[in-house]
Simulated scan of single mutants.
Amino acid sequence: MPLDSALKAASLCLAGLLPLQVLAVQAQTEQETKAVTQASTNSGINDGPYLFLNPKADMADWICEGEHKQTRVDQGKLSRPEHCGKLPEPNLNPQAKEVLADSYQGVDKIVALSDVHGQYEVLLQLLRRHKIIDQDNNWAFGKGHMVMTGDMFDRGPQVNEVLWFMYKLDKQAKAAGGQLHLLMGNHEQMVMRGDLRYVNDKYQTVSKLLDRPYDALYGQDSELGQWLRSKHTIVKINDTLFLHGGISQEWVDRGLTLARANSLYRENIDKSKAELKQDELLNFLFFGNGPTWYRGYFKPDFDTQELANILDYFKVKRIVVGHTSQTRVLGLFDNRVLAIDSSIKKGLSGELLLIEKDQLIRGQYDGSQTPL
C-alpha cells in the first residue's frame, strides 16, 4: 500500500471510523493486484532449457508463459513442457566439452560470421539461404568448417536459442567430417565474469524466475557453461587467422602462441575484472589491446607495417575479425583484414564470409554471393 494511503487508513482506524480488519484487507488486495500485474507482464516469456549438472543432470528448467517449469531429462533428450512456444529440445552431446585443436590445414571451404547477439531468426535465415544448414536447421555444409567469431550473448532476445542451435551444429558438423569453431568474444567473457550491462531485459526477468543470477545460468555447473568453457578464442585455418577483435603488435612483442593464449583464456575466464587486471599478461589478453577488444585496424592512423609483422608472425595471408560493426562484410588492406561484423545485432539482416580454396566471397542476406 502506498505510504499516504496507509497513513490515511491508519488515522481512520484510530478515529474508530475504519476497522483494522479493513486495513489488512486493503493491504492484501494491493499485494494481490501487484502480483497479478507482474504475472501478466511475464506471461509472454518463454525461455530455456537450462540444465544444471549438480547434484545430477536429471531435470531441465524452463520458463513457459512466465512460469518456472521442469521436465525430466530422458536418455539425454530435453523435451519442453506444454505451452512453451518453440523452444529448442536438444539432445545432449557427451563429447561437447572436448577441447579441440586450434590449427587446421587442408580445409576446402570455410564460412565465418560474427556478433549475432541473440538475433536467432536472422542467423537462421542467413545460414539457410547460403545452404550452410537445411530447411530443418540441420548442418548441410559437409566437411566445411564454420567459424563464429564471438558475441552470441547480450543485446538480443534469443541468446539461449542461439546457443543451443550452435551446440547442435557442433555435434552435427563433426559427424559430417566438418567442424564448428565457436570463438569467445568480449561479451562471452563479460557474462562469464558477471558483467551484465548489456543483457536483454527479458533475461533479467528469467533470472528472477529461476532464482539465479544471469551469469550463473551459464556457470561451471551447467551444460552450456561447460561447453562454452571448452572453446578457443583464436583459431588458424589454412592461411587465415580467426578471432573476435584483432591481433595487435603487442601480441608479437610478447611472443605469444595460440596454444598458450587459448589455454589462459579457458583457465581464467571466470576471474573478476579486478583479478585479471592484477596480472600483466591476463590484463593484456582480456582487455585493451587484447584479441577480444582490439580495434586498431579500423583507426585512420593504423600502421600497415604492423599488419605485415602480424601476418608474418602467424604465417597467414589474412586475419578475419568481428567486434567492430560494419554494414557488410568488408575487406581492408587488400583483403589482408576481413571485417565480418555485419550488424546482425540490429535484428534486420546480416552477411557472412565464405572462403573456398583461395576465393573470398561475400554472402549477402538474400542469398546472393559476390567476390570480395
Rank of each mutant, 00 (worst) to 15 (best):
Y167V: 02
L180Q: 01
G150L: 06
G177T: 09
Q158V: 02
L163G: 00
V162P: 01
L196E: 05
A176R: 12
M146A: 15
G185P: 12
W164Y: 11
M190I: 06
D154V: 11
M192W: 04
G194P: 08
K174D: 13
G150M: 08
Q189E: 12
M148Y: 04
L180Y: 00
Q179S: 13
F165P: 00
M184Q: 13
V162G: 02
L183Y: 12
M192L: 12
D201W: 05
H181N: 14
L180P: 00
M192G: 02
R197N: 14
D201S: 13
Q158R: 15
K174L: 14
V191D: 06
F153C: 04
E188A: 11
G144Y: 03
G178T: 02
F165R: 05
A173F: 08
R197W: 02
G142Q: 15
L180K: 02
M148E: 02
H145V: 05
A173D: 07
M192N: 12
Q179P: 03
L183H: 09
A173Y: 08
D151H: 07
Q189W: 01
Q189K: 05
G144T: 05
L183K: 08
T149D: 09
L169G: 04
V159G: 04
Y198L: 14
M148N: 11
Q158F: 13
G178P: 00
L182Y: 15
M166E: 07
K168E: 10
Q172T: 02
K143G: 10
W164C: 06
V147N: 04
H181D: 13
G144V: 03
F141M: 00
N186T: 06
F165D: 01
M148R: 03
D170R: 12
A175R: 13
A176W: 08
D151G: 06
G156S: 10
H187F: 04
L163R: 00
K171N: 07
M184A: 11
L169F: 06
G142S: 12
A175S: 15
A173C: 11
E161G: 01
G178V: 05
F141I: 04
D201Q: 12
D201A: 13
R193Q: 12
F153Q: 06
K171D: 07
L163C: 03
A176M: 14
R193N: 14
L196P: 03
M192V: 06
G150V: 10
